[in-house]
Design a protein around this nucleic acid. Sequence first.
DNA 1: GGAATAGTGTCTCTCAGACACTATGAC
DNA 2: GTCATAGTGTCTGAGAGACACTATTCC
Lengths: 244, 244
Amino acid sequence: MVSYEFPRPIATVDVVLFTVIGGQVTEPADRASPRDEASVQVVLVPRRAEPFPGAPAIPGGYLRIGEDADLAAAAARVLREKCGLREVFLEQLFTYSGATRDPRDWSLTTAYYALVPHELLRGAAADLVLRPADRASGLPFDHDRIVADGLRRLRGKATYTTLPTNLLPPRFTLSQLEEVYEAVLGRKVHTSSFRRKMGELEVRVGAEATPFLQKTEQSRRGKFRPAVMYRKATAELVSFPQYF
Amino acid sequence: MVSYEFPRPIATVDVVLFTVIGGQVTEPADRASPRDEASVQVVLVPRRAEPFPGAPAIPGGYLRIGEDADLAAAAARVLREKCGLREVFLEQLFTYSGATRDPRDWSLTTAYYALVPHELLRGAAADLVLRPADRASGLPFDHDRIVADGLRRLRGKATYTTLPTNLLPPRFTLSQLEEVYEAVLGRKVHTSSFRRKMGELEVRVGAEATPFLQKTEQSRRGKFRPAVMYRKATAELVSFPQYF
DNA sequence: GGAATAGTGTCTCTCAGACACTATGAC
DNA sequence: GTCATAGTGTCTGAGAGACACTATTCC
């Protein structure tokens, strides 16, 4: 039997890009203000094309089968072209589809979510818009739902993995890490328990186990007691033995 | 700016269908043999079309944009047409893509995984092939990887949700439920702890909480002590407060 | 010294793991 | 009674939650 070809749908990719601002995460070390809370933001880009030109939307675009090796490569290209970002954490979220979600034709979009430390955004594209991730609504297409799903995934994985470390630069303090977790989870964590669990977390490198968090010689200096800066032992996601 | 149309990829859906056989799950109540372990099986269908005609593969097919409302509907149609199944648990797994995964063209397939009690398979299509899910290999395309990913998802969700209940008929005993969890997780669980956690599990129905497992008047009779049969309070997935 | 943040020590209480125990029905 | 499965009671040990405490820096 010869394979019969069916009409093909529109195929696109969309990226929910998250970052964290506020608190100790982005403030200069010498800031004087009392601690304000860090918050998760979603990065939007004004649409250039029809439909909805000008409306802030999550970055996305057509799959280019002559150019993209696979969907992940297409998502990375979108981040590069629309946000000026390279080498950020990127993971597939969900594929949304349907006869009516795009006014033009039956369409299918594979959504990815990405995490970026805020400092990397500052040198990137100029037309980026930040919105609090839990209050993003009124976006075109089904982007409201995609953002909500991405945030849910981020929250879920934050409870048992080191995923939120990807929202910080390579060197960070434990206070910053705690703030990022609190921003993502939407609640305070117990400082002592948090440090205990983080400090006990190990990662296998071949046969031997090494601590996931490695002390560096650097410290972050501000108006008060300096904080030790840590780096990750691996870029991989690491799971906690138990929940938070 | 007028939207420029790019060439579209092949779009298909594939379904990893799991079931559990053996042990108390499928044996007749009066069987005399000593308990053999239950095991997770993946359901395969011999391919009818090129490429790889005749080879057992996970059921799949072209997306039909004139017929399918969305990808989930396409997956449900595939289960109906190729396996004779309706109304089984079905959830999106991952979208696989690339220029080379299908010899014909740049292709994209959204994989779903589905769970079915074995008794529903007996009245279904005749050409179905069962394979132990953890030893399925040599399948066409990238189906080996898709099955492995589906099994990993099933295992992962089994540790914190009631997902494996979908591998049992509407009425089941706690022993059967334990066997299904053991088959999925690939290890024994502690009977006492398992029953304690299952028994304590509650589900919110509006404002009030009711037990997830509801006793029925029926009991499952065999050669030995009869077992109380339970039913689920809800078809929804329920999460445990903690891990197993 | 005070203010503010960084970081630690330790108690408690919950709950999963362990396992011995009882219960029921066919024979 | 025995056999086999169904189902329970209870101890314990690990570890998250709670919170008081100490440490370091700038002023």
